[in-house]
Design a protein around this nucleic acid. Structure first.
Lengths: 245, 245
DNA sequence: CTTTCATTGTGTCAATTGTTCACAAAGGAA
DNA sequence: TTCCTTTGTGAACAATTGACACAATGAAAG
């Protein structure tokens, strides 16, 4: 818990994406005593891989361990130090801040995005910041440091990846319907898709298995439930299939 | 030139890709006195951005400044330290090596790939290693540290990116023919493409301008020369066009 | 100078995919 | 029972893909 345990000059920042009815959201942490927000993040222990460091951040914030995680950027301008913001964070935590505090130095940040099913999400108390919030990525609050930029870059990376791989299913429950799948694509890509064509295309990928069940408790015709089939997916990958939308 | 000028624990590695007649090649540096090769790389000065650090590596190795550069990965296992290999490199350079040498420590490597036109390439003497070679990426020699893995990951990233953006033109001269463009795609994606369809598809992208000239000095019918048109490209991007092959 | 041959630009045609629209079945609400 | 919305599916037409054909071009061979 201090300078000597971590790799100096290196930090981890995570953009945790979650889907709600009509928006893609990121999990932000409020810096107590301010109106500013930060991304969940941390540092890399000296005997820990950077991936493990990111997983620890996720575990401590979401209570989840089996998470889709993607490294999308490492940012490192020479001016990337934020003593003012670090001071605010220290103050909000009752930690002593000094001019020479190690966290004031220039930092290189290794950035990951995570895709989680918000229904499985269990907020667990972090030691650093208390208040958390799912924030619509198109309506960000004031954020400290360059975290707004990191978040936007993470979103760009997600959009690009989603165009090539069916990673969006990690935002949905295990069982999902075609309309739910379509809505997920529409929200992330920020454009409407044609329903009939979307379903045919998705089913042509041959990576989902249709279940006997249908989604219950919906007002109109009950849609079928589907499940992602890892074996089918690997088969299609071997065949050189593409999954671009 | 030493520990105190660089960010500790952080290195830069560059996979410099260049195209020859029938293969995609990476620029490797030979560690004198051994049969082992390494990627061009370096460290990050304390007041230098990581991108600038990568550009410096490229400048010092290729003599080129205006280079397509893409950050594709940051690697950082906790075991990622290579004292034995560092010792070999030190020996080959006549630098004193000690057990506690700063370069023996655990390093996080920020990895870039660069795409250059080999015809513009001018080898410039690095201080570290003398002998260089363009090596077919499908036939790699023995490499130190985990550089072979970095190279493979860089190639995977290049293939993925090439499927979405016309970045491959950075490997070609300013003026190129459709058969040359096709060959570039075939070599990188490692599969044959149908000639007629390829041309129609590329021209449908509407990002190239056909010149009046044709490629001279070729044995058969002389193909037209084309040039990438940045304005056209930006227009298509604005229209939301995709460039996947 | 003619013939041969590989390459390039372009065209044809069938199969597949994209786009738009339609319609019946399902289920809640009036 | 009627009305309304959503879902699954299919029809019709447009565009793209994939496989091949063919004439024009230019070097090499005779």
């Amino acid at each position: 818990m201090g300078e000597e345990n971590y790799l100096p000059h290196v930090s981890i920042d995570c953009v945790i994406f979650g889907l709600t009815d009509n928006s893609l959201n990121a999990l932000l942490l409020k810096v107590t005593g301010t109106e500013s927000w930060v991304l969940p993040g941390g540092y890399v222990e000296k005997d820990e891989s950077i991936e493990d460091a990111a997983l620890h951040v996720l575990k401590s914030r979401t209570g989840l361990t089996d998470i889709y995680l993607k490294q999308f950027m490492t940012t490192g301008n020479s001016e990337r130090s934020f003593p003012d913001d670090v001071r605010r964070i220290c103050e909000s935590l009752g930690i002593e801040w000094t001019e020479g505090h190690w966290a004031n130095k220039r930092f290189i940040s290794i950035c990951y995005y995570a895709l989680i099913d918000v229904n499985k999400f269990k907020p667990t108390g972090g030691e650093l910041e208390q208040e958390y919030q799912w924030v619509d990525i198109h309506n960000l609050p004031q954020m400290l440091m360059d975290h707004d930029n990191i978040l936007r870059k993470g979103y760009e990376a997600l959009k690009e990846n989603l165009g090539n791989h069916p990673i969006g299913i990690n935002l949905l429950p295990d069982k999902f319907t075609m309309p739910e799948l379509q809505k997920m694509y529409e929200i992330i890509l920020d454009k409407t898709l044609e329903r009939s064509h979307f379903q045919k295309k998705m089913l042509r990928f041959d990576i989902f298995r249709r279940l006997e069940e249908r989604r219950e408790g919906v007002p109109h015709k009950r849609p079928f439930l589907y499940r992602f089939d890892e074996n089918k997916y690997q088969n299609e990958l071997k065949k050189g299939a593409r999954f671009d939308v």
